[in-house]
Amino acid sequence: MSASAVSPARTSRGSYSDPRESPATEVLRTGNGVRDLNPATQLSLAGGLALTAVLFGPLCMVIVVTICLVLSALAGRARPFLTLFTRTILILGIAIVALQTFFVPGTTELFSWWLFTATAEGLAAGIQIASRVLGVGASVILLIQILNLDRLVLDMEQRGMSPRATYVITATVNIIPQMRKQMGVIMDAQKSRGVETDSNLWVRTQAFVPTIGPLILNSIMGVEEKALTLESRGFSATGTRTSLRYVEDRPRDKRLRVLIVCALVAIIGVRIVLWIL
């Protein structure tokens, strides 16, 4: 096998070659520019947007939300973004504005309805808070749309995080589906002993209680064996580990992060200037 086949030099958009990219190593890539950004870039992007929204409130909220929507659309995730945004953050924002408008005391009365009086001060306060919530919320939802957990963990490993730390993260995220599966097993065992688990909600709730004991017991006992299993699979080995997958951190990722930092410095500067004036 020729050397060039082992580490292929790529010439697509900013030529680079990566020694870690052996033919047996798979690059985690979706083909979508936004989703294929390095996780660190995605995090700084979302973090920068959220910070901007917090610093500027209503002034920038519309811009931040629009950017989030556009980026989600570029990632091919406009619809899930909008669904999640309107069902959670938007409702929360409206609730905040409403509550503040009616409950913050003020002198300027806008209108009054039954026992409640809407004040201009309340409305203003509500808009201040809600716009920040909307901006931060949109950034978080954007992150949910574009950030892949496998890539994030892999990237952290590549940046030198200890395997123990990344294990804890991945295992924690996986624990819910695993518990659910284990609960199914316990439920089956109890069904076979005549505990009713199929019928209505109340009966199911009653049946759920006896599963909690075994579930917790199983997880505690499981932890011991799992620790020993990991040990048997060389988890405590000290040498370098092999990755079968690889997350790219391309020059354009680095440039983008520099750009984000510069933009943030500028934004914070503007904010300070505005405060002083």
Partner: peptide, 9 residues
Amino acid sequence: GLRNLGVPP
């Protein structure tokens, strides 16, 4: 397990 031992990909 093999990854932990650093076996080549």
